[in-house]
Computed example of a mutant assay.
Amino acid sequence: MMTKREIYTILKMTASYYDQFVIDQEKVDNWHKVLKESTFEQCEQRLMYYAAASPYPPKLCDFANKPAGAGRAIPNCQETLEVLWQTDKQASNEVAKFHMEKIRKILGIERGS
């Protein structure tokens, strides 16, 4: 469990790597709410890896413990093919007529009788 002092130390380290990173009391409090269940060593290690790879200051989510299954789901080849080959349903005649009339009204087009 991390203390606010440890959070401040992580933020101070971050500020030493990134000049544009600003520390204030609100940031310490908010980061503590999210990171209090992490350990100092975990956050320090994440910061080291992050700083070595990115020229931009980290966000809170770069340090937070992510639950299993969190993040983006990447489809496999079969799922991708299914999405690519889906055919869109045709709109009913009533829906098409309704929207065509709406477009004509917006464009100021009068339909001849």
Rank of each mutant, 00 (worst) to 15 (best):
M1F: 13
I7K: 00
Y8N: 14
T9G: 10
L11M: 03
L11C: 03
M13N: 11
T14R: 03
S16R: 13
I23Y: 12
Q25E: 15
E26A: 12
K27F: 08
D29H: 05
N30E: 14
H32A: 03
H32G: 02
K33G: 06
L35A: 04
K36P: 00
S38I: 02
F40L: 14
E41P: 00
E41V: 13
C43S: 08
R46H: 05
R46N: 09
Y49Q: 08
A51N: 04
P55A: 09
P57K: 01
P57D: 01
P58F: 08
K59H: 11
L60V: 10
L60C: 13
N65M: 11
K66Y: 02
K66M: 08
K66C: 01
A70S: 15
A70L: 11
A73W: 10
A73N: 10
N76G: 13
N76C: 12
N76R: 04
C77H: 05
E79I: 02
E79S: 07
T80V: 13
V83Y: 06
Q86G: 08
Q90I: 14
A91T: 00
V95P: 00
A96C: 12
K97V: 10
K97D: 10
K97T: 08
M100N: 09
M100A: 10
R104A: 12
R104E: 12
K105C: 06
K105G: 09
G108C: 05
E110I: 13
